[in-house]
Design a protein around this nucleic acid. Sequence first.
DNA 1: ACCATAAGGTACCTTGAGTACCGTATCAAC
DNA 2: GTTGATACGGTACTCAAGGTACCTTATGGT
Lengths: 192, 192
Amino acid sequence: MAKVRRRGAVLEQAILRAAADELTESGYAGLTMDRVARRAGTNKNALYRRWPNRAALGVAAYKQLVEIRLGPPDTGSLREDVLAVLRQMNEDVATPRADLVRGLMASAAEDPELFAELQKMVGDGGSSMWLTILGRAVDRGEASPASLHPRLATVAVTLLRNEYLTGLTPVPDDVIVEIVDRVYLPLVRSRP
Amino acid sequence: MAKVRRRGAVLEQAILRAAADELTESGYAGLTMDRVARRAGTNKNALYRRWPNRAALGVAAYKQLVEIRLGPPDTGSLREDVLAVLRQMNEDVATPRADLVRGLMASAAEDPELFAELQKMVGDGGSSMWLTILGRAVDRGEASPASLHPRLATVAVTLLRNEYLTGLTPVPDDVIVEIVDRVYLPLVRSRP
DNA sequence: ACCATAAGGTACCTTGAGTACCGTATCAAC
DNA sequence: GTTGATACGGTACTCAAGGTACCTTATGGT
């Protein structure tokens, strides 16, 4: 019996891979320690040696899933840039992912450190990206320089995130357009 | 042994009361069927005869907690009105309640009907109240008539809700002021 | 070649959701 | 009253899943 025994980083990656797969297939509810262990071809010990509990593994696995970040679009028009980002996000976050974030948030709330980590991935809103997009728009005269403030710049994502956290995904395209045309564009153009 | 046996609505109220108490004391995680039953002086049968599962009971109990709605303030100034509502909300929703909403949302997501009900309580944002506040502001010339649109009117609550759903509560007062002064007021004043 | 370390294997504890049954108080209808 | 359906109380159970304990064995460093 040739039992090649994986160790360290190799095994860790295998576990994370298994966990991420489980997340995408069955959501956070489907992420049980036994299933992940079995799928990774190992057992719960190996998991608990690395993560203190299910929530921590969940967050780590989720991190794998969101690593694929793309740069800001540059269509030459603020409206198109914003629509592109929101639509992209709406696709990424479609049905299974929203459940996932809800589950993780609920489950990680007990551990402040873990929650903070999750927050970085979910709640941040990527303000630097938005400031880039807006910066270009300011140069083109499409937005006021006063709009270059994180809270203001991320209003569009924040509203969309609210939609899929409190509603059912995916968000209809009309809603996205409404957010952009009735809220975001008027806001960044205005003169405070 | 004089066993006065409660039935129907009486018992139902007792259960809901017990569940609501459990929610405020220990959060959604503390809402176990056994505990609620014991606290209400009954047993799980009585619970399952009324609600199909824990999530449904949780939502029903939560409804009890949020029934106390107050009307919109009328300070004579839009800024003060908005600040008052947001600050009130921030107090109401302080620490335990945010966990609660997160837990319920995650747990109710499987049942669309239940989720919709919860959404009405959490996600709605009370657009009618906001339209009232804004309506007065329009009369005073503090806001543009074009701002009388649900999506636009509720932007402030939505941003605040996002804070306490993705962050840890309570939200610092600076954040509330920032939302009002840098986003909401400029938005409702502007007119393209 | 040795040895601490970390795998694998398995069995276990505990909590909590949900179910099944049974006896009995309550209420309505006759 | 007497009867009969309903629904409450009590208890005991199943099942799934998080988390722990303990032992054996492969692995890689010294």
